[in-house]
Computed example of a mutant assay.
Amino acid sequence: MTDGRIVLGGSSGFMGTYLARRYRAAGREVVTISRSGADLTWGDEEGIAAAVDGAALVIGLAGKSVNCRYTPENRAEIFRSREDTTAALGRAIAAAKRPPALWVNSSTATIYRHAEDRPMTESGGELGTGFSVEVAKAWERTLFAEDLPATRRVALRSAIVLGDGGVFGTLRTLARFGLAGAQHDGWWPVSRARRDAGTAHFPGARRGRQRFSWVHIEDVARIIDFLEEHPELEGPVNAASPHPVDNVAFMAAVRRVLGVRFGLPTPRWMLEIGAMLIRTETELILKSRWVLPERLADAGFDFRWPELDGALRDIARP
């Protein structure tokens, strides 16, 4: 880990809270930006500009969670929250007399298509279609929109991040109720409105064979450290373990780690009803995300948690 001030946009979320704590424990100055409870708010353009000027690293994580129903209002806010906050960081960097050497901004591995045939890499991956993909594309367009010759930019295409909280907290709850079995895709009626909005999920992998790409939260932090130390890396970078699994294997690993002997498989119709009740979308667990970290591997990055069982055991330990 290098030295110098870090400006952390989107500091109140799962990843931002972890990074702020980690960097401060290492003795680095951290200036946080969030809607509330941070050093600066997104409306404070002068404060953001002052923080960015002379900083070593800017990290952008802000954006409304996609763990919601894709109503027109939520879809608009998902786009706006990512584009506006990323543009605010871009303007501050463009105006800086001493611009940061590196700007790492969140993106998502969801930018790639539903993949059952082969893994997606930065060089050979195919971008998908639909609402979630368009969000990711817009996020990256905003990141690279400004002319910033002195600042290297990385779009961190993250897989599902596993840590103490987030997705794993939900899985722990499901396991307690015997529901930590595989999630099975299948037919479900799709309205014209969903087709038009790009939010329809059509049947894909069957019997829990959709691929599940993941990454330990500590390795995401270590990837950002690695990016600081490797100036040859810029543009899209996949942040995903080199050993993805399918949904059946993932849920089996969750049960092993939590000491749960049985988990009922969940069919599509049950998932859809549950998603409506808890106000989320089934795409988050039914889309086959098969992503490999080609550029990190080629640059020599060494994952601390490359295997799923070890990563889950680290997260689940008291």
Score class of each variant (00 low, 15 high):
F262V: 14
R268I: 01
A136Q: 06
R98G: 11
D219Y: 01
N238P: 07
F250C: 03
P267I: 03
A239Q: 02
E218F: 03
R82T: 00
T85R: 13
D314W: 14
S81H: 04
S106Q: 12
I315A: 05
I217A: 05
L156Y: 02
D39A: 07
V220E: 08
T129N: 13
A38R: 05
A87D: 03
N247T: 07
L148I: 10
W305F: 14
L296S: 08
R80M: 02
V66Y: 03
V257K: 06
F250L: 08
R157Q: 07
V167Y: 13
A249H: 15
G54S: 10
L258E: 00
S81P: 03
R113I: 06
L143M: 10
A150M: 12
D84C: 15
F79P: 01
E73R: 09
A155M: 09
V154M: 02
T173C: 11
T151M: 04
Q183H: 13
S107V: 06
F202G: 15
D117C: 05
E232L: 14
G9S: 05
R153E: 11
D302F: 08
A240G: 10
T108F: 05
I160L: 12
R255I: 03
P72K: 03
R75S: 00
I78V: 09
A193E: 12
Y18F: 12
R28E: 01
S12T: 10
P267W: 01
I285G: 04
R153Q: 10
T86G: 03
E126W: 12
A20T: 07
F79C: 07
L40K: 09
T110Q: 11
E140I: 04
F212T: 04
V237T: 06
R24H: 04
L171K: 05
I273D: 02
T41C: 09
I6L: 08
M15R: 02
R153D: 11
E126I: 12
V248I: 14
P236R: 08
V31K: 07
P72D: 00
G10L: 06
T170Q: 15
G181K: 03
S213I: 11
G125A: 04
R91I: 09
E294S: 13
L312V: 08
P244A: 08
V58C: 07
V7P: 01
L8G: 00
S123R: 12
G130Y: 01
